[in-house]
């Protein structure tokens, strides 16, 4: 089998080309570029789903029921990814409240990250783990700020548009997350004989989805746009940072074993089809988020009060 990364690499290359074309061509292309990535995702999806049903080999223990993995695992991965985008958008919305600070923050996080990684290479034991942890965290913050800086500079992103991105990503994450919970139940019945096993991963996912449902309800119930933006951004950031500790708590509470659903334990044919489906979900999710982003921006523009009349008219 060829590498399962090829369809993903092609899709990401297509994404870069489409974004560049949108920036250079403007007009109709600028407002519709994401359909390209959506169609590519749809193609992968049809291929991956057909193959998952009829081409991929039977799983050694679960037989044909194992085919549910080709929808269950991508839904899990990509809902988590969508919540990560929501976090990035909300964090970005907070950062873009003061875009002139971004170069300074870029310098600080870049230097700190490099220092942390260097310390991790030099040290041993627990200090190494700590240095690596904070180094990687700072590098991620650096990359996020770099993306924000470039987006601000070349695409005119501001705190509002980052928040619209977060809104759309949260919605996509919730849709995929609810699907994931349903698929988990359908998968649990034939394999464990019960619809819900309080499996740590699935339980933590359920709590994660509930947390983000709460955040999006907060968005629905605050009426002033600026207040809404900053409150929802903060709530999203806290909700996301809370995920690992929830997972840890639930895992301790239920130290029940469950089979690994990462591709490493599957044979290479199954890994390939799993990856094709995961890429398909990713590109479809990118289309969902991009469409939702436009809708959120259009709605915000419609809600905004009409601009004040020009000064000269007032003077007359």
């Amino acid at each position: 089998m060829p590498s399962g990364y090829i369809p993903g690499a092609l899709g990401l290359a297509l994404f870069v080309v489409l974004v560049a074309a949108a920036k250079l061509a403007g007009g109709k292309v600028r407002d519709n570029w994401e359909h390209g990535i959506g169609l590519y995702g749809l193609g992968l999806f049809l291929w991956g789903q057909y193959s998952g049903l009829f081409v991929a080999p039977r799983e050694a223990m679960m037989g044909d029921v194992g085919r549910i993995l080709y929808v269950h695992v991508p839904a899990a991965w990509i809902s988590m990814m969508a919540f990560t985008w929501a976090f990035a958008g909300s964090f970005g919305s907070l950062m873009l409240q003061a875009p002139q600070q971004l170069p300074k923050i870029l310098g600080a996080t870049g230097a700190g990250g490099a220092l942390g990684i260097a310390a991790a290479v030099a040290l041993d034991g627990t200090p190494r783990k700590l240095a690596a942890f904070f180094g990687v965290l700072l590098v991620l913050a650096f990359l996020e700020c770099l993306v924000l800086y470039l987006g601000h500079r070349f695409f005119g992103w501001d705190a509002d548009s980052a928040d619209h991105f977060a809104e759309s990503s949260t919605e996509t994450g919730i849709v995929l997350g609810l699907l994931l919970l349903f698929l988990g139940a359908v998968f649990a019945k034939p394999t464990w004989g019960t619809y819900w096993t309080w499996d740590p991963r699935l339980t933590a996912s359920a709590i994660m989805v509930l947390t983000f449902v709460g955040v999006s309800l907060l968005r629905a119930t605050v009426s002033d746009p600026d207040t809404r933006r900053s409150w929802v951004s903060v709530a999203t950031v806290i909700a996301y940072i809370n995920i690992p500790i929830t997972y840890m708590a639930v895992k301790w509470w239920r130290t029940m074993h469950q089979l690994q659903s990462t591709p490493n334990t599957l044979d290479s044919d199954m890994t390939f089809w799993l990856r094709v489906n995961a890429w398909a979900f990713l590109f479809l999710a990118m289309w969902f988020v991009a469409r939702g982003w436009r809708i959120a921006a259009a709605r915000a523009a419609a809600e905004a009060p009409p601009p004040l009349p020009p000064a000269r008219e007032v003077a007359r």
Binding site: L210, T211, G214, V215, L217, L218, T221, V222, I245, A249
Partner: peptide, 22 residues
């Protein structure tokens, strides 16, 4: 956050309960 939201007495549990599960 929820003092200013509509239906605040419902919003507080909705936001807080999933968060304090750990």
């Amino acid at each position: 956050l929820t003092t200013r939201a509509r239906a605040s007495s419902v919003m507080l549990p909705l936001l807080m309960f999933p968060l304090v599960v750990p």
